[in-house]
Amino acid sequence: MLPVWLDPIAEPVLAATQAPDVGELKGEVLREWGSSEVWRLSYGLRSVIVKRGSDAQTSEGSAYERFVVPLNLPAPRLIHSSTTDDAVLLVLADVGLVNLEQEPTAEGFLAAASLLAEVRSKPVDAASEFTSSHLLDLVLRSPADADLTARLESLVSAVDALHEETPARVVHGDYVPKNLVTDGTRWTIVDWPLAYVAPHLSDLYTLARDAVAVGHQSEPIVARYIDASGADPELVRRQLALGGVAFTLRALTWIVEEGSQTVPSSSEWIAPLLTELDDLAKDLA
């Protein structure tokens, strides 16, 4: 079984795998959502990852152009990219069979914290995409009630202050265990369509959050990031809190505006995300 949309990218797939023709390829579905479909295609010992992204997922090609390639970020090598009427098709190097979700070890989470410090060390020539104006726009688009909206609007000064204290860097935007892949030696970050630029640490927030969910402690992960980056612990604390606000707000607006149609089960995430957002806003108040 192979993806029905393979024809436009068949040539680079065959070149990368050295398969004599498409009929010789073996296909394995890795993800099949409304806006994202991911396959591993292989011939013998050679394999590639092919992706079809629509809606918000179409921006992965531009993320490679803006950030991944020029900054040499730890991401799969882009072999080919093409665009159809409503989707982007990517052929990527296969960087490993195991992700951190499948094997959620403490060592893996610590390695991911160090990897994030590497990403955040790269200066980027782009303006922040999470300023106080962006905060207010997301608040208006979110399903927050009047009390939570007021608390979030009071964070404008905190967001402005963060921009004065530290430069904006690349944010992956979905730094969760399923997007951290290893070949047994090296860790790589996959799935970059949500990447943007900001001074906060939403990526460290989601990494620590998911570590706690599987029974690990968050403190060693944050400490590893601080050690690897040489950052000020107090600054990191505020970057984490505002990163949590950014993550939950972006997730909520995505669910309301797109996710409820493309991933219907995402509607169930709204209530817990609002509770999480409320707790973060209170902590920052």
Rank of each mutant, 00 (worst) to 15 (best):
Q102N: 11
E107F: 04
V197C: 11
G96N: 12
V38C: 12
S35A: 12
R186M: 03
I255Y: 00
V181S: 00
S82I: 12
A158W: 01
V263N: 15
A19K: 09
V22Y: 01
G27N: 12
L100A: 08
D283K: 07
L180Y: 10
H80G: 11
T262E: 04
S229H: 02
V159G: 09
D203S: 15
E153Q: 14
L136S: 06
P167E: 06
L71F: 00
A93T: 13
D21P: 02
W33A: 06
S47L: 01
G108Q: 14
P76G: 03
E11N: 09
I221M: 06
R46G: 02
L204K: 03
L277Y: 00
L25F: 04
L152F: 11
A228F: 07
E276L: 02
T275E: 01
S260N: 11
A271M: 07
K178R: 15
V88L: 14
I226G: 02
I49M: 14
V98Y: 12
A213M: 11
V156W: 00
L116S: 04
G53H: 01
Q261G: 00
E65P: 10
G259Q: 06
A19P: 07
R209S: 08
T275L: 07
A63K: 13
V48N: 10
R40Y: 05
V245C: 06
L201V: 05
A15D: 07
R66T: 12
S266P: 01
G53C: 04
Q57H: 12
T262K: 06
E101M: 10
R120S: 08
T185I: 09
S229N: 03
R238H: 13
A213S: 13
W187C: 06
D191F: 07
I255V: 09
S82F: 05
D7T: 02
D55A: 15
W269L: 11
N179L: 03
R209D: 06
S128M: 01
A146M: 09
Q102K: 14
L115Q: 11
T17N: 00
V69S: 13
R250N: 02
G244V: 05
F130T: 08
N179P: 14
T262P: 06
V95M: 07
D174R: 08
V245L: 04
D137G: 09
L252F: 03
V29W: 10
E268Q: 14
